[in-house]
Design a protein around this nucleic acid. Structure first.
Lengths: 355, 355
DNA sequence: TGACTGTTGTGAAAATTTTCTTTAGCTTTA
DNA sequence: TAAAGCTAAAGAAAATTTTCACAACAGTCA
């Protein structure tokens, strides 16, 4: 149906039997519009051959990093990937960080002003650590967004109504632990801080792997928000208690850095005495010996987040999407067989290929 | 003069004897307007108590990272410091990255849309690698900004007309080299890439220190934009040529990481065989042995950049400011006395306190 | 030199967004 | 239980931005 002449809000409004103001509100994602009316307007617009993205002047997304000090290389790379994909699709992107409490009711949260100005920002990407009150607010204001699902606190039901992208770090924790188990380790400890949500999923994977092998998950958790400190203290206290340990699963690479320091302090060598794995592949390659860790493809996460929000802008009434980006375990030099297994191997004069 | 009733574009246009459209163009910075008329409109607007940015009283700064992949921990920390200081002063901040060629004439550069909108962004902080054409453009458009001076290409004269903040990395390079000289090193090499502007100033400090001690600066430079690779290859080729070397000044911490790898490959130990220093204090603490490096107080730089631009917003007609933030040399475990000196010390049975 | 062409800069008008008002459906309260 | 008060949602009106058309000017080519 080739529309003759210009097709503007006036025509759409007429076709949908609403005012121009309402048509404007629907097409640029502004203000609150009854979902029913929204649907009608979009349908009419489509009939006239107008999709939202053609309509808009501002092709800019906002990347909102919530409740983070933003120093983390991991998030920096997500942003980087998002930016690259934006550029490739002809969109701009601004980044801002935002701090809020998960306990503030949604209607008392005050969004950064730029986000609220919707003539500029067409969609938002939520990364960092979020909670459902912010989701509520954005939903309420009718702001289009996609969400990094890994660190969200609150009811799962609410989250599932959004477009969510996950890094599969549960599987990552599982794979990392599996690797250690295959090498013959049995005394495998988790070091991190289970109070912080970004360790929780990795820890969950660790637990599953341990339980599936009939072992008890054992955690040395320190409530500090400095990752390195957390790893250092967690390991120290574990060694001080005289626990048996041949391998350590660190909550992330920075934690692993602290673990390294503590082991070295005790004169233990890596990987001969203790094997270590990390998560996130941030500083792992700088450690010595180079850390075996879990790569999470942060650039890919960024790309998926952009894709999700652009898809939502194009077709506002589709069902919520959920995307999971896989992880990869990277073998470097921080894992070997545990001492006992090595001895047995030598005694039996076996020559199986090293795992 | 308190204007009665609303003051909008209609009133401003009337006072300046132009059309509303022109007033709009001036006030939001879109479209081309004759500078004379622009001036008249702004003057009338001010008389009516409306400055372009106050109109919507947006208190937002933009942090523009130019021509960088943004992964660098160093810039991430500048941003972090800027953000914190903004928040403390009640301002918002958005971050965006921007790529442009130093060779594009200023009037052909196209700024990110958000920046151009004065109703949103009252000031800009320029970090990353910049060139004078962008400064020209901002100056022309009348956009307030402050500038991180360390990586700017172009005439010094133009730069000095802006509010500039420097990290004193020339001094940093000098101090780092001094430290090695005091330890007794004489065969000190610089490893980096002298084509990249962010190594240039540190290198300059190194050179000065060498020359002042009557030594010839010696550089092994590799034209790669991957820092680690640059350090690795630079060191490898230097060793392959059989050059005498007891200490290496690496262009930054990532480069030092590559240097470590190359030394280790050759079976040389740090600091016994070769001393290494880095710059920027990014990954230095993760290396083993921990890297002695130069701290540049990036958070402080961010804070100073914000202060500079806010000062300029407050008092637009003050003289250009130039601020230099000092650096600090951090001693960790990567530097010792050179082998010959140690021998002498032992032979002479001296017991001077270690430097 | 004069016609042609392209570039600016402007106001008028059209399009769009935002604000203001009204209405209808709830909830609260006396 | 009815009046008062609230809130969401939509239209009307105002404000603002963008498009369009046109004039003024500069350069170019026959």
């Amino acid at each position: 149906m080739p529309p003759r002449g210009k097709v503007g809000l006036r025509e759409i409004a007429k076709a949908a039997h609403v005012s121009i103001a309402t048509a404007s509100r629907v097409m640029n994602g502004n203000g609150r519009v009854d979902p029913k009316i929204q649907k009608v307007v979009l349908a009419e617009a489509r009939k006239l051959g107008v999709t939202p993205s053609q309509q808009f002047k501002s092709r800019t997304l906002a990347f909102l990093l919530s409740n983070r000090a933003m120093l983390h290389a991991f998030h920096s790379r997500i942003l980087s990937g998002a930016e690259a994909h934006c550029a490739a699709r002809g969109w701009d992107m601004v980044f801002l960080s935002y701090h809020y409490s998960p306990h503030t009711p949604w209607n008392e949260l005050h969004l950064p002003r730029v986000i609220a100005r919707r003539d500029l920002i067409r969609g938002v990407i939520l990364a960092g650590t979020n909670s459902t009150n912010l989701l509520e607010l954005l939903l309420h204001k009718g702001i289009t967004f996609s969400l990094l699902g890994n660190n969200v606190m609150g009811e799962q039901a609410r989250i599932e109504k959004c477009d969510v992208v996950y890094a599969d770090d549960i599987q990552g924790g599982f794979d990392a632990t599996q690797h250690l188990l295959r090498l013959g380790h049995r005394s495998i400890w988790f070091v991190g801080n289970d109070r912080l949500p970004w360790f929780a999923r990795f820890l969950q994977g660790y637990r599953r792997a341990m339980l599936e092998s009939g072992l008890t998950p054992r955690e040395s958790t320190v409530d500090s928000d400095k990752d390195t400190e957390c790893g250092f203290l967690g390991t120290k206290s574990l060694l001080a208690r005289g626990e048996e340990v041949t391998a350590i699963v660190a909550g992330n690479d920075e934690v692993a850095g602290g673990v390294y320091k503590a082991l070295r302090d005790r004169g233990l060598s890596i990987p001969q005495d203790v094997a270590v794995v990390g998560c996130d592949d941030t500083v792992g390659m700088w450690l010595f010996p180079a850390l075996s860790t879990t790569r999470e493809f942060p650039e890919q996460l960024g790309k998926s987040l952009v894709e999700a929000v652009l898809r939502r802008i194009e077709t506002p009434d589709q069902d919520p999407q959920s995307i999971t980006v896989p992880t990869e375990f990277i073998r470097r030099d921080s894992c070997g067989r545990p001492p006992q297994v090595l001895e047995e191997l030598t005694q039996d004069a076996m020559h199986g290929s090293p795992i």
